[in-house]
Design a binder for these strands. Structure first.
Length: 329
DNA sequence: CGACTTTGACCGGCGC
DNA sequence: GCGCCGGTCAAAGTCG
């Protein structure tokens, strides 16, 4: 079952809400992009325009776009359902394993299992353990907050640098058993007492993907926010996620966003994109005031909560993965 | 010259 | 108890 490989149980437990919400947000983004493309698509040469033909063309395009929007919404719904199903199956599987005394208590076995999950959204490595030791380790992880960020870079780029806005001092590098690529160890050097550590290693499956594992909490504001002291340093501030590289997935044990963006029709239109005055045939279209409210809410979320972008990135990557799953099925 | 990186040595945990 | 392995230390090297 390929899907199981892509989600460690803990990532499922802790990640579900943010992924779902952000997946919905991604869908909303899709719709927004559609609308954007619509507005671009309507960029008709004025010399060719005659009143009725243009109107007909517009209506036709609107119909097409609406249909496409609807299809995408349905597709997303199916994806969310599949995800939920997989999540349930995985939980069942894990609970069965616990009941039957199946334990992966061996630390290294657990780690190697985790390492087999590198190509997907995976949580902390201890997620498959079930005995007392691993329970302890899980508690420790909750205490120390571990998060993982996947960053796509140029495969030919040998540097293990993930730019996230913080200052890091490299204190070691090792070649690990299960990955030919070396693993680099960093400590946060922005504040002398900051306990945060970072491990960076290329994914064994995809050498163009850097896996950065953050441990601990910064006890200082993000350097870029140092003046504003907005520094909500809950966990590894995912606002620190690199902007120079494209993030394909992330996991955080920090707080999750619970925006319910799964309502159909949400984000189908965006004011100011040239379709305010055009009524879509789609019955799900809300009033402009409501759309305005939604857009403002989304914008507010984006500006206020840095982890939103991380969740969104995770959702997009998850969607891509789910897309490939749907294609396989 | 100070800050940062590299890299071999060392340490502690874990499995056999 | 021994060996393996991941993580860390610290001296040497490099760079601006």
């Amino acid at each position: 079952m390929p899907a199981i490989d892509q989600f460690s149980p803990q990532s499922v437990d802790s990640f579900s809400i943010s992924t779902k919400a952000a997946a919905a947000a991604a869908a909303a983004m899709d719709s927004t992009w559609l609308d954007t493309s619509l507005s671009f698509g309507l960029n008709v040469n004025p010399h060719q325009v005659t009143g009725e033909s243009l109107a007909g063309e517009l209506v036709e395009k609107l119909n097409q776009m609406s249909a496409e929007n609807k299809k995408l919404t349905q597709l997303l719904t199916v994806m969310c359902e599949n995800y939920t199903t997989l999540q349930t199956q995985l939980k069942d599987l894990m609970s069965k394993n616990n009941e039957t005394g199946f334990t992966v208590s061996k630390k290294r076995k657990a780690e190697s299992m985790d390492n087999n999950n590198h190509n997907g959204v995976s949580g902390p490595t201890e997620s498959t353990s079930s005995d007392e030791d691993s329970g302890k380790r899980i508690r420790e992880d909750i205490k120390t907050k571990i998060s993982r960020v996947y960053v796509r870079t140029d495969a030919s780029d040998t540097s293990l640098v993930v730019k996230d806005g913080y200052q890091w001092r490299k204190y070691g590098q090792k070649v690990t058993r299960d990955n030919p690529s070396p693993r680099a160890y960093f400590k946060c050097s922005f504040a002398p007492s900051c306990p945060v550590k970072k491990k960076v290693q290329r994914s064994a499956e995809d050498r163009s993907v850097l896996v950065a594992t953050y441990e601990g909490e910064h006890n200082h504001p993000h350097p870029s926010q140092a003046e504003g002291s907005l520094g909500s340093s809950h966990g590894v501030t995912l606002g620190s996620i690199p902007c120079s590289a494209s993030i394909i997935s992330s996991y955080s044990s920090g707080p999750t966003i619970t925006l319910d963006l799964t309502q159909p029709g949400l984000g189908l239109t965006q004011p100011g994109l040239g379709n305010n005055n055009v009524k879509k045939p789609n019955e799900e279209v809300k009033s402009p005031a409501f759309q305005q409210f939604l857009v403002e809410q989304m914008a507010s979320s984006l500006t206020k909560d840095p982890s939103f972008t991380a969740a969104l990135a995770a959702a997009i990557s998850g969607k891509i993965q789910q897309n490939s799953l749907v294609q396989k099925w």
